[in-house]
Amino acid sequence: MKKALCLSAVLLASGAANAEGEAKWGYSGDKGPENWAALSPDNAICSGKNQSPINLTGFIEAELQPITFDYQKGGQEILNNGHTVQVNYASGSSIEVDGINFDLKQFHFHAPSENHIEGKSYPLEAHLVHASEEGDLAVVAVMFEEGEANEGLKQGWANMPEQAGDEHPLSEQASASALLPSDRDYYRFNGSLTTPPCTQGVRWLVMKQPLTASQEQIERFADVLHEPNNRSLQPVNARPVLQ
């Protein structure tokens, strides 16, 4: 039952609004991240010891196996759920990690970045969210630095819904491959979803090589969201960060 609920949180526009249109959680004030665990019994794990995001540092050398990416064009629709802009993905694209196949369900963005790398924050971070048949979760995170315009963002940005709850079909299916760097080396740690219900046991795979996005692209996303949508850094505790 727990894994079914976790998968629902990934697939749905989680936390957008209740029937009265009032946001269930947010990034500031009484509904901000420091209060998520108290907002609902379903969010209790938000105060757990294996939460994301983190500052990735103190790396442990490990023989990490390459991630096997099998991405097809499959981005069908883009939506604004009030907390991020998200592209929902058709079935048929996946990664393989630890001998397990994880299907790509959606990708979305945070500005500024949620994870930091050796203390560095980035202006934009993409999360490509995957789930196995058993309901286990894996997130590929990609950082963006300000620089050249990013071709992989252009289609979604041109169709970006400006109001919470708005959803637009994409006339041509988007490809998540365009959001991956050429160098697929990565950091790995065990964490959680960065939004309620903050489900733990998530495999985090953070690409080492950042991509670029133009100032205009970064500002466009920030203007639509109206406020930063990054959860504060969480304690690493005893978790190893592998590279």
Score class of each variant (00 low, 15 high):
G82I: 00
N115Q: 12
V142Q: 11
K2D: 13
P41A: 11
Q234T: 12
Q243I: 10
T84Q: 08
A23N: 08
G135P: 06
E22P: 02
L7C: 08
G29E: 07
G119F: 01
V97D: 00
G21F: 03
E22W: 10
L39P: 02
Y122V: 05
I117M: 03
D185F: 01
S132P: 08
Y27C: 07
K73R: 14
E34I: 04
S232W: 13
Q217N: 10
S177Q: 12
A37P: 11
L225A: 04
P66A: 02
T194V: 10
K3I: 06
S175N: 14
P169E: 12
C198D: 05
Y71T: 05
D30P: 09
V140W: 02
G75D: 03
S8M: 13
E125W: 01
A37T: 08
Q106C: 05
S8G: 10
A164R: 13
P123I: 02
A222Q: 15
E216D: 12
N18L: 14
N190D: 13
I45R: 04
F144E: 09
S28L: 10
I218Y: 04
S171R: 14
I100F: 01
D183K: 10
N237Q: 08
G58E: 10
N18Q: 15
A13I: 03
K3T: 14
A158P: 03
V142Y: 03
W157M: 15
Y71D: 05
M207Q: 09
S132W: 07
Q76Y: 03
P228N: 11
S132H: 05
E63F: 00
A16C: 14
S94Y: 09
I45L: 07
L170T: 05
F69Q: 01
W204M: 15
T199E: 13
A16P: 03
Q86W: 00
R220V: 04
L104Y: 00
A37H: 15
G75T: 03
H127Y: 11
L137Y: 11
N81L: 08
V85Q: 07
K105E: 14
S47Q: 11
H226D: 11
L242Q: 09
A131Q: 04
V236I: 14
L12I: 13
V206A: 08
A176K: 05
E151L: 13
V224S: 04
Q200R: 04
S214N: 06
A131G: 14
N115H: 14
L225W: 08
T57W: 03
P169N: 09
V142A: 02
G147H: 06
A141S: 15
P181S: 00
A238S: 14
G92D: 05
P33L: 05
Q243P: 02
E114A: 13
E162C: 08
T212G: 09
P210Y: 07
L193A: 07
A131V: 13
P112K: 01
S121R: 15
D30Q: 12
S47H: 09
S8Y: 11
Q209I: 04
L56G: 00
E162D: 12
G191K: 01
E20V: 07
D30H: 08
W25R: 01
N101A: 12
P123N: 00
H116F: 05
Q86S: 12
V224Q: 04
P228T: 07
G119A: 06
I60S: 12
E219P: 00
S214R: 12
